[in-house]
Write a protein that binds this DNA or RNA. Sequence first.
DNA 1: AGCACGCCGACT
DNA 2: GTCGGCGTGCTC
Length: 728
Amino acid sequence: MTLGFAEIALPVPMRGHFDYLLPEGMVPCIGARVLVPFGRRKLVGIVMRCKSASDMPTDKLRAVETLLDEEAVLSQLFLDWLNWASQYYQHPLGDILFTALPVNLRKGLTQDALQKAWQLTDKGQQCDPQDLKRAAKQQALLIALKPGPQLHQTLSEHYSAAIFRALEEKDLIEAANLAVAAKLDWPEHISLAEQPRPNLEQSLAISAIAHQNETFRCFLLEGVTGSGKTEVYLQAIEPLLRQGKQVLILVPEIGLTPQTVRRFQLRFGLDVGILHSGLTDNERMQVWRQARSGELGIVIGTRSAIFTPMKSPGMIIVDEEHDGSYKQQDGWRYHARDMAVVRARLENIPLLLGSATPSLESLNNALTGKYQHLLLRQRAGQAKPVQHKLLDLKGQQLEFGLTRGMRQRIQAHLQQGNQVMLFINRRGYAPALICHQCGFVEECHSCDRSYTLHRSLNKLQCHHCSDAKPIPHACAQCGASPMQPVGMGTEQLEQGIASLFPGYQAARIDSDSARGKQKLHQLLEDINQGKHQLLIGTQILAKGHHFPNVSLVVILDVDGALFSADYRAAEKLAQLITQVAGRAGRAHIQGELWLQTHHPSHPLLQDLLNNGYQHFARLALKERRFAALPPFSYQALFRAESNHAAQAHDFLLQVRQLLSPGPEMAAIGPIPALMEKRQGRYRMQLLLQSQQRTGIQQQLNRLMGQIEKLPLANKVRWSLDMDPQDFT
DNA sequence: AGCACGCCGACT
DNA sequence: GTCGGCGTGCTC
């Protein structure tokens, strides 16, 4: 029986595979890439299966043009894993397969590691070395190359560039590319740097992991900031590395700092593969290849690093597992943490999730015993816990968002030579510009949201699309002037702070001031050098950077999150507060965290402050259970957007009508998205919610084909978001 | 997603 | 007269 047909997955947004004829003698392996004709173009595809017959009439089939790989680029395990993902996320397999590959491989480039080498030309082969006896070096090189090509890197130790050039000009040698064998001897070269003695809790965690590091097991390492989670990672992976097993570490986008990488490098004296958005395609390809061939013991990367193959996987670690950057927010909306769980199960290796503020999903899994729960409650190095306090804003006179008492407190901390961090979740100068005469607000016509005033750019900027315009001198509606800023952003606070605390230097850290990686690092460096005493910033301040000289942290306004339409807002606020608090203080400075609010008696704030995140999260879980919200139910969100609001609405209505109603699955919508209009398009949502995952899954399996065939399906831009995190 | 085909408006 | 706008349809 000959296998003359192949199922090929292609990078097109269509579900189902494509059958092709295999030319005589072409025997591709599963997971290899091929070049196929598709319509009027040529595409790179992945061989999913070879078979002896096709459902398609043979005369409709076209033939595979080229086999691009001898060896599969996706292992059977990866194919199984990504097939699962295609089912779970209801996303076309081809698209998933290609997102999981480095760009070079998507483009059909070779997967081989080729290094520059030299070989003899035909003329060189025939040339008698005696002819070169007047040029000893050239003669030696010619003789060295007689047995076969050699790497340039090796040769260049003995021969200078002039020698190569001379022989090349005589047409005796030519450049070549040579595949190199992987160097797998790194486990023998581990040189362990001196490591701190773990405290009791760390020891317990390390040994718990060590006892089950041979098979699949999920651990949730819940450790307060500064409790030494990284030390647990380091000591937990050591025995695995010594056995030659590799470790993949995921970190949030902002958390991948040179310091993090250096810590792993220095501890084991090994090369660490790094994957982040700043790399070139070739650099990514290199890490991918080295990880797959087993040359790298440790790979650290952001979200998409979860697709790094490993020859001998030993463990996957997801640091700050609650972080929102693990969820892809367009195209295939996968969650890297969830993908990690399934991968670890298939690879049969342990998965270690770490966080000071675990997501309610992971916490629930830990509390129900699905994950093993490891707790670190002590801050390592005797750092005192930060005191949390509430400040009632009601009836208070504010100057730049600060009460008189708070201004005095800030002054006191500055006078003691400490740093103060002010946290405000709005960048720019002011979130709106309003006419004092008629109340007119400048709004972006694409998004129906007020423009943010940026004094430093001298512009009005829409934070929801890229639109910007000059600051108007007068009201566009009634002509009165000038327009007035309302509300406060980081820019205004920075300016105000300078006038309130003359003599102290303020640093503003937000995505405007920290544009470009170098800039952020420079700012952080300056801060820890003490060049600035007042730190003003947004979310960025809360992530990954430690400020030991900060003794006072003020979150200017927490009320927005307390009354949000997004049920996750409270959880996110609690995570933010806890993370910010963890950035401050050290052994002999008592850190203080102040939350300014109009609702000091709000139960969420009270619980968080009196009992900490751990308690808050457990309470929040109870509320979620009561309200049948995730993780006690499962959600899928259809999003649709269109230039015509009615089309997006009608499409989702038709989707809803296709669903069979039942008690096991609720459908909410179509309703406008939290941001109803964005970049000129109207956005609607349809939320599916079920107590059982299978409830949603089965219906979607049945319906996605029909949904795609709806006439409106090609008129509106729509997508499905499994386990949505964000309802904007 | 691309890419072509196709049918209506303002320009050399 | 054409260049080009993007609606529609198809790709094993």
